[in-house]
């Protein structure tokens, strides 16, 4: 059975540049988001892969309890000093999550090989009881020539139910789309990200730049406040440093 795409030479990788641009955008056009987001974060870029078609679920602890950067992911510190997502385990459920390098000229990815995994492939984020997961963003990619592709994705919380979801459709030309989610689960709540193949060649799809936060507080007392951005405190403290 064909497992993954055939290699087509070694194109110039755009993944790093793309990732950086995308991450910059995720933090805001003027870096505002970086100052405004108080949560510790991990972004899995898969750039550490050196071979294709290995089951990611077979790589011990891949993406689990990340507390420092590596070739496979970058991390960011939150305002409380937490780095990465040390209290969040990531489970690449079942089969079908494959390593892949130099994906159609866009660097390394986590391949969604529906040939191996069946029509539904999922991954789960499980935080410790005192933490919550915030799924920030991810990108879906289709290698050119896979036919008109269509995937339904959903984000489902073990307590919150379905939190987000959409259909992603591409033409035969393939390409990439980013999905900004920004949804937090409750403390200790497992969030599952599901991808369901509708149409397209089953081995032509991939995930990249999977970015998630570890947040200490999933919601606010009132419905009004959105996140503990702490820009106000920063403004006061900055004034002191200026002295």
């Amino acid at each position: 059975m064909k497992r993954g795409k055939m290699k087509r030479g070694r194109p110039v990788s755009q993944a790093n540049g793309f990732s950086q641009i995308f991450k910059f955008a995720a933090y805001g056009t003027l870096g505002l988001g970086a100052a405004g987001n108080s949560s510790a974060e991990t972004a899995i870029t898969f750039e550490g892969f050196t071979t294709d078609n290995l089951e990611i679920s077979g790589i011990p602890g891949y993406g689990d309890n990340v507390s420092s950067a590596s070739a496979d992911w970058s991390v960011r510190a939150g305002l409380r000093g937490v780095v990465g997502t040390p209290d969040i385990a990531v489970d690449w459920l079942g089969t079908g999550w494959h390593t892949y390098t130099s994906w159609d000229g866009r660097g390394n990815v986590g391949q969604l090989d529906f040939n191996a995994g069946g029509p539904l492939i999922s991954l789960a984020f499980t935080p410790s009881a005192a933490s919550a997961v915030r799924l920030v963003l991810f990108e879906l990619d289709e290698w050119a020539g896979g036919g008109p592709g269509s995937i339904d994705w959903t984000l489902v919380g073990s307590l919150s139910g379905q939190m987000a979801g959409a259909n992603w459709t591409m033409t035969d030309a393939g390409g990439r789309s980013g999905f900004f989610i920004g949804q937090s689960g409750q403390l200790g709540e497992t969030l599952t990200l599901n991808f369901m193949l509708n149409t397209g060649a089953p081995s032509y799809f991939a995930l990249d730049n999977l970015t998630f936060d570890q947040v200490p507080e999933p919601s606010t007392w009132a419905l009004g406040a959105l996140g503990a951005a702490a820009l106000g405190a920063a403004a006061m403290r900055r004034r002191r440093r200026a002295h």
Binding site: F22, A25, A26, Y27, G28, T29, L30, L32, G33, G36, N37, V136, L137, E139, S177, G178, F179, F180, G182, L226, G227, A229, L231
Partner: peptide
């Protein structure tokens, strides 16, 4: 700009009120 990038930028603007 990708829609996702735009949303991320929008969220950053939101965090700054």
């Amino acid at each position: 700009m990708l829609a996702a990038e735009a949303l991320a930028s929008g969220d950053a603007l939101w965090a700054d009120y």
